[in-house]
């Protein structure tokens, strides 16, 4: 019996080793970079520049920030690398370019063709004890201005700007703050969205000892205003975690795409 299982184990080891030999370079760990390159109307997003939404309204942006979390990298043959949760929370701010280039280390070598992530902060983290909320999750520091204390949770997407059609009494500003993770003990609206993107052509080649491949993502700020539902600033200038936020999150779910992958 024992000999049999030993033989079987040896066979397995040999088989695996043989397989590994087939793509002999792909082992070890490397890094990967993901850049969130904000766009509007077909070119780089610029605060203060005039844009026109699908409802025909003129607008300018002053804030465009979003949380990215729970990143998963997937290879061509479907192997999934789940980025360890504690390293998987990012707050990307348009006016702070460093926050929009994220680097993930200790990625198993391989050819990655898709990337998955959540826009927002998952429900488990959203209700976690305060001791587990550091960095961009600290409500009084990194998350200050991106956290609702009256409806405890993070503001997944924070978009603000001005428009001549927004109420003049409030300085013509519009504000779209989208959050809500589904509730703790009692249910709430859930605006958490998981995004799955596939590379347009070449895979991101993670190799040990080589530079990090770079996923260059485009994030279309204008997507929040259309598809499937056209959003009018005149009709809805403010949304702070209300029912309308479901319309906004359904619109922005397709604002991400991988423009290209750059291998070093």
């Amino acid at each position: 019996m024992q000999i049999k299982s030993l033989l079987f184990a040896a066979f397995c080891v040999l088989t695996i080793a043989a397989c590994k030999k087939d793509n002999d370079e792909i082992k070890g760990f490397g890094s990967i970079e993901i850049e969130f390159d904000n766009q509007a109307a077909g070119s780089a997003l610029v605060f203060g520049k005039d844009y026109t939404n699908a409802a025909g309204e003129s607008l300018q942006f002053t804030t465009f920030d979003y949380y990215i979390s729970n990143i998963v990298l997937v290879t061509a043959d479907g192997a999934r690398f789940v980025v360890p949760q504690e390293k998987s929370y990012f707050l990307c701010k348009h006016d702070d370019a460093d926050t929009r280039e994220i680097k993930i280390d200790d990625v198993p070598a391989g050819d990655y063709t898709s990337i998955e992530f959540m826009v927002g902060i998952d429900s488990a983290k959203s209700v976690s004890p305060i001791g587990e909320r550091t960095g961009v999750l600290d409500p009084a520091a990194g998350a200050n201005g991106h956290y609702w204390s009256w409806n405890s949770g993070y503001i997944f997407v924070k978009m603000e700007g001005t428009s001549p059609v927004a109420p003049p009494d409030f300085g013509n500003i519009f504000q779209y703050h989208v959050g809500l993770f589904g509730g703790f003990d009692s249910p709430t609206l859930n605006n958490l969205k998981t995004i799955k993107l596939t590379v347009p052509d070449e895979a991101a080649e993670v190799r040990e000892g080589k530079g990090a491949p770079h996923f260059h993502l485009f994030v279309d700020a204008m997507a929040i205003f259309s598809s499937p539902t056209n959003v009018s600033i005149a009709a809805t200038p403010f949304s702070h975690g209300d029912a309308f936020s479901a319309t906004l999150s359904a619109n922005y779910v397709d604002m991400f795409m991988i423009d290209h992958v750059h291998n070093p």
């Binding site: 305060i130 409500p139 009084a140 200050n144 204390s149 509730g183 703790f184 003990d185 009692s186």
Partner: peptide
Amino acid sequence: GGVPNLDLVPLNAIQSPVEMDANPA
């Protein structure tokens, strides 16, 4: 029921514009 954890309760009162209206930072 807007706050699901006792640790987060004070932030609500501190930040409420009609209660303490302060920036926790």
